[in-house]
Amino acid sequence: MRPHRPPRSLTHLVSQVEHRLTARLRAALEPDGASIEEWRVLDLLSDAEGHTMSELAEYALLLAPTLTKLVDRLVSDNLVYRRADAEDRRRVRAYLTPRGQDRYLLLRRRVAAHEAELAGSGALAGQLSDLCDSLDERPRTTAR
């Protein structure tokens, strides 16, 4: 029998789920020596369109200095390369190398297997995506 718990807020429940999912994903990526942040960067770059550092930081949920260190390591490991943006030479875009694409495909299989273990994850992912979009569209309110 489970101990009685007070009702949890939506924010608390989502945080608990995020912590548990992150721990499981970390364990799924661990055999390949990959971090969740590396996975997120490779995942975004897998579209072969090239992305700016600010796009990568937003998608990977990293601050710019941390992302820069990660991308530097991925460049050193020949998984990612950088090129000046064709339209704005002041900006840099990152792309996967062929080796990076291979690593992405390997990790994608790990992540897909991890997500397949979660019953109903497809429907839940859609709902969470809708919730994220809804939160982005609504102005933030401040408590008084």
Rank of each mutant, 00 (worst) to 15 (best):
M1V: 15
P3Q: 09
P7L: 12
L10I: 14
L10C: 11
L10E: 11
T11D: 08
H12P: 01
V14L: 15
H19V: 15
T22D: 10
R26W: 05
A27Q: 14
A27C: 11
A28W: 00
L29S: 04
L29N: 04
E38N: 01
L42E: 02
L45R: 00
D47C: 07
H51Y: 06
S54Q: 12
L56P: 00
Y59R: 14
L61V: 12
A64Y: 12
A64S: 14
T68E: 09
K69D: 10
K69I: 08
K69E: 06
K69P: 02
L70I: 03
D72M: 08
L74Y: 03
L74H: 00
N78L: 03
N78D: 15
N78I: 04
L79N: 01
Y81M: 10
A84L: 14
A86Y: 06
R90P: 01
R91E: 13
V92P: 00
R93E: 06
Q101K: 14
Y104I: 01
L105Y: 04
R110F: 04
V111D: 03
A112Q: 14
A112I: 04
A113M: 11
E115I: 07
E117Y: 00
A119F: 04
A119K: 14
G122Q: 08
S129N: 09
S129V: 05
S129W: 09
S134E: 08
E137A: 14
R144P: 15
